[in-house]
């Protein structure tokens, strides 16, 4: 079997200010594009990453976003220090939001972020501890590579 390649990189996200919101997602999108990851996967990862970044900015003190790329999948892992989510099932509901007016002014806070993250990923796992923080793991599978393992590997 072909040896699986792996790329991993973490980025810091500052909570509370929209000043640089989206910067990390933009960087991650560029990295994936440069790696030659297929357009559809880049797009899905960029969307889930951006919604995650907006959530860290909107609700947490600070956090990190980690990008992991293998031949068959892209993983986005976020960890933040913040209030946590008391009821994850409720938070997942489209339309549920505790966003402030400042967040709404930016065009977010319609309660669709987590739904978008679920829609565009193949796996979504949220763990959260109230008063401590939230972790979100999302995986986007590259089925073309799984179904056609002879395609050339990603160039990192």
């Amino acid at each position: 079997m072909r040896e699986s390649q792996k790329f991993e990189k973490s980025f810091d996200v500052q909570g509370g200010s929209f000043q640089n919101a989206g910067n990390v997602s933009g960087q991650i999108k560029s990295i994936l594009k440069e790696m030659g990851v297929s357009t559809d996967i880049v797009r899905r990862v960029a969307i889930i990453c951006y919604e995650s970044e907006i959530n860290i900015v909107s609700y947490a003190k600070k956090g990190t976003i980690t990008l992991v790329v293998t031949d068959e999948a892209v993983k986005i892992e976020t960890k933040d220090e913040g209030p946590g989510i008391p009821d994850i099932e409720l938070a997942m509901k489209e339309g549920y939001s505790t966003a402030t007016a400042a967040v709404r002014e930016m065009g977010f806070g319609a309660g669709m972020g987590l739904a978008n993250m679920k829609k565009y990923s193949d796996h979504l796992i949220i763990t959260s501890e109230v008063g401590i923080g939230t972790c979100v793991t999302m995986i986007v599978m590259d089925f073309s590579k799984i179904l056609h393992p002879d395609l050339p590997p990603l160039t990192l």
Binding site: F18, A21, G22, T39, R43, I47, Y50, E51, I54, E105, M106, G107, F108, A110, M112, G113, A115, N116, K119
Partner: peptide
């Protein structure tokens, strides 16, 4: 005007018509 709606439904290479003006 809702960026999450744009993220949910917009397709690449389209125009985005909006009343919002912020960097997001």
């Amino acid at each position: 005007d809702l960026m999450s709606d744009v993220l949910a439904f917009a397709k690449p290479d389209s125009l985005l018509l909006t009343g919002l003006t912020n960097p997001q």
